[in-house]
Write a protein that binds this DNA or RNA. Structure first.
Length: 754
RNA sequence: GGGCUCUUAGCUCAGUGGAUAGAGCAAUCGCCUUCUAAGCGAUCGGUCACAGGUUCGAAUCCUGUAGAGCCCGCCA
């Protein structure tokens, strides 16, 4: 559809020239999506902006423009509205053709970029001396999603984990450990990471309070950075230990990235200083080597320095970042450098980028961009902390989300009288919990602070991961129920009732739900004289005796009430046929009431399934009598967890058709709305590519789920007649594939059932 | 003192110079004999912080004011 919009633009440009002369060649037709569906799908605002230069009323301009406009191959005739808006609406046969193209495309119509770029996404970047905590959440999730989106568009992405494994913090830690627990520096895993974090905190405290300790720490950094054997060994042990811990978190989040920590750039640091000196940018101030910045001033209004080398000879993170920029441009040959870090570092990056630019290290062909994000706040509006005021560990945060998802799921299973395996429940809770954490983060505009709330992110309604996962599950429900293989859609002719054929079951690939063969008793055995198993029915009756008794009382009461009414209106008895009519109405109302009570007392689906089983049994028995199916057991492939057999799908005679010929017809309003939305995926992804705002994709997926649910509500799929049935199945399939793709670009897997 | 970001419905937030500023949650009211109601529909809710300016047109761009958050010489 992107190419169509490009074509529309060209047509408008041509019309502008033929209407108003070559002076208007290259005028932007100002094509934008319609601000309101009632105005159509697209609109041009160009007539309004030309009012002044042309000296004509905008409506008149719009009319002339429309006369010269030929867009009949994909749009309805353009209309002029309001002060001079030109409104456009897609033709439905154009939309149908586009959907057909999308259906056959594994990329769902999303273009590969024409000029693939080498992009570095620098994200996550935890500090080696600490455990991963809530502060790393956003960088990790947002960075991963950005990387996934750029990769999908065909860019060559290098995901870099710029871990904090260098600098003063290590000086502090090593100095402190040497004092209190020297074995940690020489023996692998002498303490666990939690203790290391405790040591780090104490070291930091000492560093802030004790001048002597501070000096020793700085000396330690210099030793480490100059390659001292013993310091180096201690450092390696510490890094190795926390690296393993990080990996556990990354595995849980399904995030892959290449570690290239600050230490990697250590050998390049002297070169940075030399080259800055050569460029004449370096100034010595109080013993430190600095670059004075343009546009940054201190309290007295003097230029602020960026410290490149400290007075003790050590280097700062600014130096490392400068070295990294050079390496990434020269050795990695990256054309776009994306830094996903918190908004608090905006100054730092602006400064570093400025110095790199002034030093001539940043060619015009390279884009460096800081992608900032806001703080994670608690529901009290302050920085998120545990109840005891500690920083929240990432593993605890994920555990909590999963535990809550687990609890919610079990409550619901109980309410719905569903039985599921532990594996199923764990898998769903895991996916929903982690997905909810990711989605909540990504769905918010990253630039603002974000309020973390388990209740909101796990809510089943609203713009949340569970809502979207549910929309996907609904579609899988359709395919299961109808035995639909979306990969192999065919147009089906009139159904033939062939009830005893084994049902085809769709393999459950992403979910790995266990299936098991359930052998039903052969038709005609004593256990099922009429194919009906009495035992569960008896259990039902016993379990629901209260409801049944109430129903009975209701029926009896109704009869008495009707009789009383009839008595009251005794006179009417003389009217012919009045009495039987009243009785009929009474009985009908009573039956309705009874049905309703019964149906609430017992899950409808199960009752329906029992009825089906009864029906099957009867048909089998009849078939056996006719010697068509003798001694053939009924075998059904079912999820292990299913308590009752699924209903065998109707089998149809199949007439394969080419995908291009798949009937797609968009008639209902919800079908059209869904179709139009599906076709916007490509456009949305290209906006995310430039703005690096994954919340745009979230918004799109949420609206897609809403539009699907509206469609689902109003348009029966499986019960529809052909060719409408297949047309709707195509819409279902495209929605499912779009959701799956979209969520995967956010780093969230889908579920087949939940 | 300087810099950056922000201020939109009761709450959490979208919003790309364009028509009557949108969602979700909460509240109120409907819709299950129908593919999972974890759904759908309806109602209620606005001085887009404030004041100027630019523009045919401003929540959006510019200036100022007020408020909030973050950052600011040898931590990263």
């Amino acid at each position: 559809m992107n190419s169509t919009i490009a074509q529309l633009k060209t047509r408008f440009e041509q019309a502008l020239v033929s209407a108003f002369g070559t002076g208007y060649a290259g005028t932007d037709p100002m094509l934008v999506p319609a601000s309101n569906p009632k105005f159509g799908d697209y609109q041009s605002n160009v007539a309004l902006s030309l009012a002044k230069p042309l000296g004509q009323p905008p409506r008149a301009i719009a009319e002339q423009l429309v006369q010269h406009l030929d867009i009949s191959d994909f749009c309805e005739p353009a209309t002029i509205a309001g002060p001079g808006f030109i409104n456009l609406a897609w033709k439905s046969d154009y939309l149908e053709a586009e959907l057909r193209k999308m259906q056959t495309d594994t990329r769902l119509g999303v273009d590969m970029v024409k000029a693939s770029k080498r992009v570095i996404v620098d994200f996550s970047s935890p500090n080696i001396a600490k455990e991963m905590h809530v502060g790393h959440l956003r960088s990790t999730i947002i960075g991963d999603s950005i990387a996934r989106i750029l990769e999908f568009q065909g860019h060559d992405v290098l995901r870099l984990n710029h871990v904090g494994d260098w600098g003063t913090q290590f000086g502090m830690l090593i100095t402190y450990l040497r004092e209190v627990a020297p074995q940690v520096l020489t023996t692998a895993d002498a303490v666990d990471l939690g203790d290391l974090v405790a040591f780090y905190k104490k070291a930091k405290q000492r560093f802030d309070e004790d001048e002597l300790f501070k000096e020793a720490s700085r000396q330690e950094v210099v030793k480490l950075q100059s390659g001292d054997e013993e310091s180096r060994r201690a450092w390696e042990l510490l890094c190795e230990q926390s690296r393993r811990e990080f990996q556990i978190i990354y595995d849980r989040l399904d995030i892959h990235l290449n570690e290239r920590g600050e230490s990697f750039y250590n050998p390049l640091l002297p070169g940075v200083v030399e080259d800055l000196e050569r460029a004449g940018l370096l100034v010595e101030d109080n013993g430190a080597k600095c670059v004075f910045l343009e546009g940054f001033t201190n309290k007295d209004g003097n230029p602020l320095p960026l410290i490149i080398q400290k007075s003790d000879g050590g280097y700062n993170y600014a130096t490392t970042d400068l070295a990294a920029i050079r390496y990434r441009i020269n050795q990695d040959e990256a054309e776009r450098l994306v830094y996903v870090t918190d908004a608090g570092q905006a100054n730092h990056f602006a400064q570093v980028f400025q110095v790199a630019r002034r030093a001539g290290w940043l060619p015009d062909t390279v884009e460096v961009i800081h992608v900032p994000f806001g703080l994670v706040k608690g529901e009290d509006g302050k920085k998120l902390k545990t109840r005891s005021g500690e920083t929240v560990r990432l593993r605890d945060l994920l555990d909590e989300a999963i535990a809550r998802a687990h609890f919610d799921l079990e409550v619901r299973l109980k309410e719905e009288h569903r039985q599921e395996t532990t594996e199923f429940i764990d898998h769903v809770a895991q996916t929903v919990g982690v997905g909810a954490v990711k989605y909540a983060d990504l769905s918010q505009n990253r630039t603002s602070d974000y309020v973390f709330s388990y209740d909101k992110m796990l809510a089943l309604q609203g713009n949340t991961a569970p809502y979207m996962l549910y929309a996907y599950v609904r579609i899988q429900g359709i395919s299961r129920k109808g035995g639909i293989d979306f990969n192999n859609l065919t147009v089906e002719t009139a159904p033939i009732a062939e009830l005893s054929s084994p049902p085809s079951a769709k393999p459950d690939s992403s979910n790995a739900i266990e299936h098991t063969l359930i052998e039903l008793p052969p038709a005609g055995t004593a256990a099922s004289q009429f194919g009906l198993n009495w035992q569960p029915l008896l259990t039902t009756v016993l379990a629901n005796w209260k409801s049944i008794a109430l129903t009975g009382l209701g029926i009896y009461g109704s009869i008495i009430f009707i009789q009383a009414l009839l008595g009251l209106f005794h006179g009417i008895n003389s009217v012919p046929l009045a009495q039987p009519l009243f009785e009929l109405v009474g009985i009908w109302a009573t039956v309705q009431f009874a049905m309703k009570r019964l149906l609430f007392a017992r899950d409808r689906a199960e009752l329906f399934a029992e009825f089906q089983a009864f029906w099957h049994g009867t048909v089998d028995q009849l078939a056996e009598t006719a010697d068509l199916n003798s001694n053939r057991p009924v075998v059904a492939l079912l999820p292990k967890s299913a308590s009752l057999p699924d209903i065998a799908p109707l089998h149809h005679t199949l007439e394969p058709v080419t995908l291009e010929a798949l009937p797609i017809s968009l008639q209902e309003e919800t079908e059209l709305a869904l179709a139009k939305h599906l076709l916007q995926l490509n456009h949305i992804l290209s906006t995310v590519e430039t703005d690096l705002l994954p919340n745009r994709l979230c918004q799109y997926l949420f609206e897609l789920s809403q539009k699907f649910n509206q469609f689902y509500d109003r348009c029966p799929v499986l019960q529809a007649d052909e060719p409408l049935r297949t047309s709707r199945l195509v819409l279902c399939d495209l929605t499912a594939r779009t959701l799956k793709l979209g969520l995967s670009l956010l780093g969230i897997p889908v579920l087949e059932r939940m």
